[in-house]
Design a binder for these strands. Structure first.
Lengths: 218, 218
DNA sequence: CATCAATTTTAGAGTCATCTAAAAATTTGT
DNA sequence: ACAAATTTTTAGATGACTCTAAAATTGATG
């Protein structure tokens, strides 16, 4: 597997290819900042190698083997992110780029040892679940803060937008995973929210609320 | 810098290119298991980029910039080796391959943090010195065990051959860095040595003795 | 249902790193 | 010092990945 092939498979997985859904050539090209013609070429190659089903003009979907491969890459990426944050004091907005490189290191022993060193973490620094060695991958029970009803509380468990800009914004306002947020009021006009967090009240835009995942308190 | 360029620079350095010595095309090709014609192509490219001086038919030598670059790659390689052994329980015969991959990860912050995590080690698991962040690189005072006079003692400080086979052999006979070895007798016939280590006597071939570095006790 | 717009594929070309085979330069041995 | 052997370079080709431009297909609309 080349680095390029791994990146395609990962992208296709992220675009919903874990189900039998067909992912469009254009969507892949856009996500990877490449051209649709390059995607077509690679789609044929990856189909030949058994990673995906390619239906000309329709799109691609990952095979079981392709899904297994994608999960192994995602596992590596997320474990490295945890390592960077927990052992090397990287902040959550700095880890993505480096993990993009580290995820391509070929050594099963290495990643298993990293997993062990970190005591088998279940989630990465952005709250995304880490597939296990044997490909078990459970999405966490969560919803967008923007969809939390008024007067309810939730624990912050993840971010949808993982851009450095968004993460730095959250840092600035002390919003972090694990913190409890209560929705006090929703403005109909701009969908902004009044929230309460650690005793303090603040107002956040819909843009922010619709990129923060919370787990509703029961 | 591509991965391939980095590998060429590292190899040229190892072949003695840290001085103004000219390194032959053939030597590089042999070391890298590639063809001399490929080396010529790359030599031109690296010369264009300022990493080395290329004299057609004579060989190449690293520029100051090239040496600086080589030291940075070697630094990364050796720090990762220390990390693998000390933090992930790799044995010293397993680290090379993985470090060959990790040394190409591009992130200054990453390697500086790894350095810090390991408390700024001076030597890698094979006893080779680790260049500092600003390129200081001191060869240790050492000599081959095969050149140690009779009846003298030395501390094992490094290996010349870093092949997995040799390292496993040393493990088998409990020979490890830090141990003190006394040369009792040298057989003229085959240059094998009678040595004493931790109270036990054993006999080792010239092949072994000429691949083990010791620091003579004063 | 014919046409148009959008998407996708094909064809042809470029870059990077490599190779083989042949030519050129250097070194060696007598 | 000259021929032979060795080393190195050049020339031309290949494979992986990407691109642009043109052709083909799809599916949406009047």
């Amino acid at each position: 597997m080349t680095r390029s092939e791994e990146n395609y498979i990962k992208t296709i997985f992220h675009l919903g290819g874990n189900t039998a859904t067909l992912v469009a050539t254009n969507a892949i090209a856009e996500q990877m900042e490449t051209k649709p013609s390059s995607v077509t070429d690679m789609a044929k190659k990856l189909a030949d190698k058994g990673f995906l089903n390619y239906q000309p003009y329709q799109g691609v979907s990952l095979t079981d083997f392709g899904i297994k491969t994608a999960l192994s890459i995602i596992r590596k990426h997320r474990l490295w992110e945890v390592f960077l944050v927990r052992r090397l004091d990287f902040s959550w907005d700095e880890v993505h780029e480096v993990a993009e490189q580290l995820e391509h290191i070929k050594s099963e022993k290495l990643i298993d040892k990293i997993d062990e060193l970190l005591d088998f973490p279940k989630y990465d620094p952005h709250g995304d679940p880490i597939p296990t060695k044997d490909g078990v991958f459970l999405e966490r029970d969560k919803q967008l803060l923007s969809e939390l009803p008024i007067k309810t509380k939730g624990v912050c468990v993840g971010v949808k937008d993982t851009s450095s800009a968004f993460l730095k914004f959250l840092d600035k306002y002390n919003i972090a995973l694990g913190k409890t947020i209560e929705v006090l009021e929703r403005e109909d006009f701009d969908e902004s929210l009044h929230i309460k967090m650690e005793g303090k009240e603040l107002q956040i835009s819909h843009q922010i609320a619709s990129n923060l995942y919370v787990k509703k308190n029961d």
